[in-house]
């Protein structure tokens, strides 16, 4: 099989497996996997910026939260139906990403990390400040009756899994297509050697801004769907912890690989799930894994696979 053939076979194969699993998984894992797929979509967005473009953001929770609030506030206060509300969520994320990107991309390295961290913190505080509308940390519930889209009752496990699957498939295939395109190759070139890319005539700033907008848009889509599928919108999702988690998932699965975000999210989800069975301090696992990754496995699971076995993995 050609390399392109192998790539498509592998990725479509994973999607096929995920689709089939909904019919066989026991209820508990069925629910978990639906959640993992939505969170993995968040990680896919994060990976476009961090893994492929080399921009380490410490504030991606703000895009996730922008999507969630864009969707949730439109439904709660404007009485929108889920379809338009989801679009409002994604657009909120893209607009926020363009504004933050236009400012933050004037800095590099540590400066960029801190600027994104600060903007995310400001977004979180804004959500608290307008607590009358957002209900702050407490959050608000989206009623079951409102969570119906195209005849699907999203509060039911079956439709919920299916919609999560569609979202994840769309995000993963989008990221695969982008990274196979000329635009994606330029992003990788910028990650590898920004000055060289500039001296080949590429507008580095615009490409980076494009990556930030795309990444923020996907993260916002994940946030909007998360709020809709699980019926809850709250400021917790804007905290720093939700900026660190996608970094952890992507590092764990393999930064700059298409499958890495999913593998990392799945692995971390069950790691935390299992450890919270016997301790309240389950974030300890996150800490230990982060340190171990930085020390021993910089490429993550899929990255190590690519380095050792399958050079053709995108």
């Amino acid at each position: 099989m050609s390399e392109a053939g192998k790539v498509w076979a592998l990725h479509l194969g994973l999607l096929g497996l995920l689709f089939a699993l909904q019919f066989v998984l026991p209820a508990y894992h069925h629910g978990n996997l639906a959640r993992v797929m939505v969170l993995a979509s968040f990680a896919v967005g994060y990976n476009l910026m961090f893994g492929y473009t080399g921009l380490l953001s410490l504030g991606h929770a703000m895009f996730f939260a922008a999507g969630m609030y864009g969707m949730g506030l439109a439904m709660r206060h404007l009485g929108w139906t889920p379809g338009p509300a989801l679009i409002a969520g994604v657009l909120s994320g893209v607009v926020l990403a363009l504004v933050v990107g236009a400012l933050a991309l004037r800095t590099v390295g540590v400066g960029f990390m801190i600027v994104t961290l600060m903007f995310a913190q400001a977004v979180y505080l804004v959500a608290l400040y307008f607590g009358e509308w957002t209900r702050g940390d407490e959050g608000f519930v989206i009623q079951q009756a409102e969570r119906v889209m195209m005849g699907l009752d999203l509060s039911q496990p079956g439709p919920r899994y299916f919609v999560a699957f569609v979202l994840f498939s769309a995000c993963m295939l989008l990221s695969l297509r982008v990274m196979q395109s000329g635009f994606g190759k330029v992003l990788i070139a910028i990650r590898e050697n920004e000055e060289r890319a500039r001296m080949l005539g590429y507008n580095v700033f615009r490409h980076k801004l494009g990556a930030v907008a795309l990444s923020g848009g996907i993260a916002a889509a994940a946030g909007a769907f998360y709020g809709l599928l699980f019926g809850y919108v709250g400021a917790t999702f804007a905290t720093t912890q939700y900026s660190i988690l996608p970094l952890l998932w992507v590092l764990l699965g393999g930064a700059g690989t298409i499958l890495g975000p999913f593998v990392g999210t799945l692995f971390a989800f069950y790691l935390i799930d299992i450890s919270s069975g016997f301790t309240t301090a389950h974030m300890l696992v996150v800490g230990v894994v982060l340190v171990a990754l930085a020390l021993f496995a910089r490429q993550g699971i899929v990255g190590e696979l690519r380095a050792r076995l399958w050079r053709w993995l995108p």
């Binding site: 990390m113 300890l284 800490g287 982060l290 020390l295």
Partner: peptide
């Protein structure tokens, strides 16, 4: 990598 390590430390110490 230092940022990643110190984030890890943050959670370890806190937890």
């Amino acid at each position: 990598r230092t940022i990643v390590v110190t984030i890890g430390l943050l959670y370890i110490i806190q937890q």
